[in-house]
Design a protein around this nucleic acid. Structure first.
Lengths: 331, 331
DNA sequence: AGTAAAATTGCAAAGGTTTGCGATAATGTT
DNA sequence: AACATTATCGCAAACCTTTGCAATTTTACT
């Protein structure tokens, strides 16, 4: 109980040098089998674990990965985080998860925290507020690689893994037009994010391309309750939409609540199509038709990108993953 | 660019000693104002940040808090994590979030990781599998305080913050009886967890106490899809339940899907009451009546407990927070 | 001016690990 | 037997910070 398990103590007891103990524990070829055996046995007995800080200090690289997201409580990020964590564990890394809460100041604080902890890499989904990427660039050039995902900057001079947002929008457009809908209310998140703009572009342009007879009105809903009230208001008008498009789970949530409040039936009273991770669409009756954006796949991709960075030392890259339509009965 | 920002470098440039620089940066009273000014200016300029590992190594305490949960993708833990993270940040701590994925082996690996990183404290929600608490005890006695929350061990010789699970069960019982229900299907999670047993006890005992005329059949549903199929099966029987009780969001999710699949109406065809964090109940029509278990409140409490540990050095404690009924229209 | 007290600074060790290089001991070769 | 290899091991520096204590300088006081 008394003495802590350190190399020094082990060395003391065995009356050999610290370096020999260190090497024995790493199975270094210089060390005799017999010595290795004794060291390993004692280390086991003493429940030795290397002091991570000392190792970090000496080797100057930590086995920690920083992850900064606006909100973990979001099914998409959830699945992303889970996937990333699994992959990271396999490679011996630990995840430092930080939330920016859609506040640029907190985001910056988190960034500093990552730097302070000398993380091996930072994965970032920007918060919608963020306009100034100076801090990111500073950190990036200080040697810590940054991988942006999902909510990525416009700039191409960085590493990004993201969804094929424009294609997703187009796929939604095709589905809507295919079902013969005429009047679409399309809800998007903060236009500051490229993810919002691209999805919107994809949707509106594709519809225009396909047919001149479908009317699309786009609106911005910053959160669930905004989406809910926008829907309710829209349904009270004379020319009410026959279809509502939700670019995210957050918006979809609000729309569902609005539909319930008004007692509407899908798809008769209103058709719904969303971009989603798939959890919420399964909770309604009928289930909601959605374009699947798998956080899990993206997470895996992100980790792959990280290993590529380590091996090849790239500093700019764009990875895109595709999505597919999952039919419920809401449209 | 060339030289890194360390105390040594700053000292070298200013031609003073490292210790003076260190003290100047911490506003130590021994250092002259003029010196402090110069040091601070240069430090600012060089973008100096103390090397966290060196600090940890020297002071032997890290500003990191470990958090181990079965799954983050669970609204209850979400809100818990968010709250805890906020509180932690205020006090300068960082959260190391680890998922055990309901696998005891992973849980243990995570525990070791926490120890390895010399975290200041570990918050744990046990996974349902875990029976052996030896590792926890070992770590606990090695100086790292452990705070159990939500899914806590039975043993009272530790620190726990949890919900008033029996009371929650009783509250549900009262509501069910008050609504004149006669035939209850009550679904619980893994009975290995005290949380399941206590909720079940509270519910069944209270109903028995209140009236002999209500029939309760309890079942175990380990996940959403099990809950779904249990419900569907039950509704096909002759003596089908008029009410279903769900002890968690996970189970509730399955039940909702089952209800949708069968096209049932709440509360006419089947009444529903759940224990939930409140997100999912708002998505149905009518909304689901639930007993609110706030992860946010629990998270705050947990952090308070941690500060108490630091200040007073307690090693056993039980904190309980109460819940309230939120009426939807599902019962 | 001489001494005491206060203000300011530096020395050096400690914390635990990694690693290049040199030292020693054991074995093999001619 | 003399030398060359090879197998083992230890020394000591480095990573960066904190901190007790001693050293030095400045200021105050008689």
């Amino acid at each position: 109980m008394g003495s802590k398990a350190t190399l020094k103590n082990i060395a003391g007891i065995l009356e050999i040098s610290i370096s020999t103990v260190s090497r024995a524990l790493k199975d270094h070829p210089d060390i005799a089998q017999e010595t290795k055996r004794k060291v390993r046995e004692l280390a086991e007995l003493m429940d030795y674990e290397p002091n991570a800080f000392a190792v970090y200090l000496r080797t100057n690289e930590s086995k920690v990965i920083g992850l900064i997201v606006p909100e973990i409580s979001n099914y998409f990020y959830h699945s992303f985080v889970s996937a990333l964590e699994n992959e990271a564990r396999k490679k011996g890394y630990t995840l430092l998860i930080l939330q920016s809460g859609n506040d640029s100041a907190v985001e910056e604080a988190n960034l500093r925290l990552c730097k302070l902890n000398r993380v091996a890499c930072i994965f970032v989904a920007l918060c919608s507020e963020t306009r100034d990427l100076a801090t990111f660039n500073r950190i990036g050039s200080s040697g810590i690689p940054i991988v942006f995902f999902d909510k990525v900057p416009e700039d191409n001079n960085c590493i990004k893994v993201c969804l094929a947002d424009r294609d997703i929008g187009r796929l939604a457009a095709k589905t809507i037009v295919g079902k013969g809908k005429k009047n679409v209310l399309a809800m998007f998140g903060n236009p500051n994010l490229s993810i919002s703009r691209k999805r919107k572009q994809g949707l509106t342009e594709e519809i225009k391309k396909l047919t001149p007879f479908v009317n699309v009105s786009t609106v911005t809903a910053n959160n669930s309750s905004e989406a809910k009230s926008i829907l309710i208001e829209a349904m009270e008008k004379k020319e009410k939409p026959d279809t509502v498009f939700c670019m995210s789970d957050e918006i979809l949530t609000g729309v569902i609540m609005g539909i319930n409040k008004l007692g509407l039936k899908m798809p008769q009273d209103i058709a719904v199509i969303a971009i989603s991770n798939g959890f919420i669409p399964k909770l309604t009756n009928p289930e909601i038709t959605y374009i699947e954006t798998s956080g899990a796949v993206l997470g895996k991709k992100a980790m792959q990108t990280f290993t590529e960075i380590l091996e090849k030392g790239i500093s700019k890259k764009l990875d895109v993953i595709n999505s597919k339509l999952v039919e419920g009965g809401s449209i």
